[in-house]
């Protein structure tokens, strides 16, 4: 069928068409404000960050310790009511050197997002689940020297400046 059709619909516009006024458009900025309640699991997580501690949740049934804490265990659907601290040290599971911001601005010094496997959470399971894996950034490190398997530790904001947010950890640095 495609081989029989010569002219497909769809009209491509270029930036020039807009600059020259050939294509009309309506521009609007939507305003959408939210205040998200943090809930039981993440609320406890944020409160612990303010204290300079990373919290996980332990399942009474299958005994996994996971980060971030949550109220229900995904594996056995039992309640996770016990919250336990894990270490603020861990291992880089993977990382990137990113030269583009979230809104597509170019930057010359890369941001270094990483998945960090925190010590004290359950180990990588047979089903490739990283119980203590969280996303954060790396800092105080030469981008060329970052590698998978690198040992890192959280660098915290001074206690007086912490507000109960993931950004209470500034970044993770090599140890």
């Amino acid at each position: 069928m495609t081989s029989r059709i010569k002219n497909f619909p769809g009209t491509s516009l270029s930036e020039k068409d807009f600059a020259d006024g050939k294509a009309l458009f309506v521009h609007d900025e939507l305003k959408a404000d939210y205040a998200w309640d943090t809930g039981v699991g993440i609320g406890a997580y944020l409160a612990s960050l303010k204290r300079g501690q990373i919290l996980g949740a332990r399942c009474d049934h299958c005994r996994k310790i996971v980060v971030p804490p949550r109220t229900v265990c995904e594996w056995c659907f039992k309640p996770m009511s016990e919250y336990v601290p894990v270490q603020d040290t861990g291992t880089v599971n993977t990382f990137s050197l990113c030269y583009v911001t979230w809104d597509v601005q170019r930057i010359t010094e890369p941001e270094i997002p990483a998945v960090i496997m925190l010590d004290g959470a359950s180990e990588l399971s047979e089903s490739s689940v990283i119980m203590g894996g969280i996303m954060h950034k790396l800092g105080e490190v030469d981008p060329k020297k970052v590698h998978i398997g690198m040992r890192v530790q959280a660098v915290w904001k001074p206690e007086s400046e912490r507000e109960g947010a993931i950004t209470d950890i500034l970044y993770f640095k090599p140890i």
Partner: peptide, 15 residues
């Protein structure tokens, strides 16, 4: 837990 770090979609693919 994540948006405060100003992630972009490329991160997740690059990781």
């Amino acid at each position: 837990t994540e948006r405060a770090l100003k992630p972009n979609l490329l991160w997740i693919f690059a990781l």
